[in-house]
């Protein structure tokens, strides 16, 4: 017989990374199919169906546009609408990836108790779902970008970098919270509020240049500050993002991924007996 597997007691610590990575890669189609299934089935009952994928963030962007216009006492103009939309769409993706990812392990107890597979697939698949939902909203943004007369330059392609970094950051956080949620089940209840506050602390409803004085700490304390700041600079203003933002964003993303993967990998063999 080709392969022999030996199961011994769980002692904590990481599994052997080589075989784990191979197993994960071998199951990549499963993660993709899980994500596709989720997308395919979620809006089947509603009249507008998949159109909700773009309608939801669009309506939300208008709500926030109206809100900021009222708060600042004057209509914001096209540039602000474009900035809010670009930021909000990415934030929306980030937040649904993290909140969904946090529940991904606990809500798949049936799958976990009856099949052996690398559990890392579950948060990854949820992040993929959120990303697939996010992609069509880029089309909407493109229309708004042109209609409101924002510059179209090749520098906009810089936006790919922060976008990938947000993806990595969200994956790391999803893995971490999925694990933590198994031990402290309040985690999921706190998340919606955390996300709401996080949105207000990030340069979505305001511009990165606007933080001054006592709020300046946000520049280094909030991972989404450099990530969403550089995204907006590239995509909305069409210029190369500031180097410190890309650097800080990359650092946050890598740290989140390492911590999240370590948390999940070191506990995952125990998941089945704790569900």
């Amino acid at each position: 017989m080709s392969d022999v597997q030996v199961y011994t007691p769980f002692r904590g610590g990481l599994p052997r990374l080589g075989p784990y990575a191979r197993e994960l890669w071998a199951r990549r189609q499963f993660a993709l199919e899980l994500a596709r299934t989720e997308i395919r089935t979620e809006n089947t009952g509603t009249g507008l169906g998949q159109l909700w994928l773009v309608l939801n963030p669009l309506l939300l962007a208008f709500v926030y546009y109206v809100l900021t216009s009222i708060l600042s006492g004057k209509p914001g103009g096209g540039a602000r609408l474009a900035h809010i939309m670009a930021g909000l769409f990415v934030f929306y993706f980030f937040s649904s990836a993290v909140v969904g990812g946090a529940m991904s392990i606990l809500s798949s107890s049936r799958l976990i108790l009856n099949t052996a597979f690398p559990k890392m697939l579950l948060p990854i698949s949820v992040v993929l779902v959120s990303f697939m939902r996010f992609l069509p909203s880029l089309g909407i943004y493109a229309v708004v970008h042109v209609v409101t007369g924002q510059p179209v330059r090749w520098q906009m392609l810089w936006g790919i970098v922060p976008l990938v970094l947000v993806l990595v950051f969200a994956t790391g956080l999803a893995m971490l919270l999925a694990t933590v949620n198994l031990y402290f089940r309040d985690t999921k209840s706190f998340l919606p509020y955390t996300m709401r506050v996080w949105l207000y602390l990030s340069p979505v409803l305001w511009l990165p240049e606007q933080v001054r004085g006592s709020l300046a700490f946000l520049r280094w304390a909030n991972p989404l500050f450099p990530l969403l700041g550089s995204w907006s600079e590239a995509v909305v203003e069409g210029r190369a993002p500031q180097a410190w933002m890309l650097g800080a964003g990359a650092a946050w993303a890598v740290v989140a991924l390492l911590v999240g993967a370590w948390a999940l990998l070191s506990r995952e063999r125990e998941f089945a007996v704790r569900l």
Binding site: V4, Q5, V6, Y7, T8, P9, T115, A116, V273
Partner: peptide, 18 residues
């Protein structure tokens, strides 16, 4: 479930060929 590698043994050892 233990044979399928889903539940880790608390003690002991399982060897599965295939």
């Amino acid at each position: 479930r233990a044979l399928a590698g889903i539940l880790p043994p608390t003690q002991g050892r399982i060897e599965v060929h295939g």
